[in-house]
Structure formats: C-alpha cells, structure tokens
C-alpha cells in the first residue's frame, strides 16, 4: 500500500538535507582536476586508470618488480616525486635504474626516516602538499600499517590531490583504506622485463586480471600480452 505524502514541504527539506549529506560524505578530492593515471594504452580494461588524490597499494612478489611498477606509475603522474623509505630498509632505490621507466632523477627527492612512525608522518605531510606530484612509501614486512593509518594517508591524499603509493611486500592481508591494491610478480623473460599484474581489489569495483604484461622501453608503455588474461 502506498501512503500518500502527508507533508510535502517537510519531505522536500529532508531531500535537501540528504543531498547535502551526500555532498559531505563523497568529498571531491582537490586533485581530481588532473586526469587519472592510465596503465594501459587501451583503457577499457580498468576504466580510466588510477585516480590522483588517492592512496593506492602495490604488493610485489619481488622487490625489483614493485619498484619498477611504482616508477612507471610515478613517471606518469608528473611533477616532483618524494620517495620515502626507512633506514631499516636493506635496499636503496637506485635512481639510474628508474630512468628507463620514465622517472628522471630531476623529479626525484629521496627521504630516509630513522624510524617507521617518522616515515608515516612524512608520507602524510607529503600527500597533503599540492606542490608534489606523487609520493611513495616503502613499507617493509613488519611495519604497522592498519586501517586507521591507511585511512589517514588516503584522507591526506584527498586533501592535497597527491598521487600516493604504498609499496608493500607480498602476502599482506588486512583491511586498508587504499583505493586500489595491485599485485605484481616477475615472469621469466629474455629481454624486456615481464610481469604478471593483477588488481586484487578496488573500492567500488571488482578485482581484475591477472594480465601478463611487458614493459616497452622504446615507447615507455606497458604492453598486454595476448592470451595473458
């Protein structure tokens, strides 16, 4: 049975309030003006690409593949890039090796934190700063990165419009406020590096992949291999 609307003006007010609330909860990120960062030349696979002003996660089966994928994404986000790691990290990011992936050393600022909380703080500060194009934080295996921490980072990225990337080791579980979580693993190759990439989760979307991809240094693009999907 349909009850007739007893009080139209009151319902109109409610509707207006609801619209207002919706506007409050789905905030428009400051960096939404920038176009999303494409992954493949053909965007049909995963929509328009990775949105800026948001936090994304990359889980890597091997350290090298994760760093290379991060470099490809950061190369495409433009602007200055802050690369944050802790002193405990046994690997140093090697700027000459990032050039083939399009990330020139001129765009790179390296930050090393003595302790993990400082690295986390620096990442949040960086994501809030609209002068940066992107920021990446290398999170080791044992480092506390719970839902609250990732939500803080995501909100900071929304506020600053900065493309935020977390490089995490393979096999992490647990909740995260990141917009997407990617997984990358190396594949045997003879020449150009090849990886198996999958989208483990995305907010408001379904997981996708895996795809077998290869990086073409000549064009700086990721090529999807036939039959990899």
């Amino acid at each position: 049975m349909v009850v007739p609307d007893p009080d139209p003006p009151r319902n109109a007010a409610l509707a207006r309030l609801r619209a207002e609330l919706a506007g409050l909860t789905t905030r428009t990120p400051a960096g939404s003006a920038g176009a999303p960062i494409p992954i493949f030349a053909d965007n049909s696979l995963i929509g328009a690409g990775l949105v800026r002003g948001a936090l994304h996660e990359v889980c890597a089966a091997s350290p090298g593949s994760g760093v290379a994928f991060a470099a490809i994404l950061l190369a495409r986000c433009g602007g200055q890039v802050l690369w944050i790691a802790t002193e405990q990290e046994s690997n140093l990011v090697w700027p000459p090796g990032l050039i083939p992936f399009g990330l020139a050393p001129e765009r790179l600022i390296l930050a090393r934190a003595a302790r993990w909380p400082e690295a986390l703080w620096a990442m949040e500060e960086a994501l809030r700063c609209p002068a940066l194009g992107g920021a990446v934080l290398m999170a080791g295996a044992g480092q506390g990165l719970d839902l609250t921490a990732t939500r803080r980072l995501h909100l900071a990225a929304e506020a600053g419009g900065v493309f935020g990337l977390l490089l995490r080791p393979d096999g992490i579980a647990g909740a995260s406020a990141a917009r997407t979580r990617w997984h990358i693993a190396p594949l045997s190759s003879t020449d150009a590096p090849r990886w198996r990439l999958s989208l483990l989760r995305q907010r408001g979307g379904a997981p996708a992949g895996p795809w077998n991809i290869a990086f073409e240094a000549a064009t700086g693009s990721l090529r999807l291999e036939a039959g990899g999907g």
Partner: peptide
C-alpha cells in the same frame, strides 16, 4: 654514479646516456 645533493638545490639535469636499461632499480645497502 650519483651523489646526494641538498633537496633545495635546483635539480641537476641528467646527462644523456646516464643510467641504462641494465641498471638495477634497487641496490643493497
């Protein structure tokens, strides 16, 4: 192959040919 310059300095342009496809992306400390 590179040194750590103060972050506030203007970025130093990369000479052509510096860095290569065979270079690692991470170096062990």
């Amino acid at each position: 192959q590179w040194r750590a310059a103060p972050p506030h300095e203007a970025a130093i342009a990369t000479p052509p040919g510096w860095g290569s496809r065979t270079a690692p992306v991470l170096l062990r400390r």
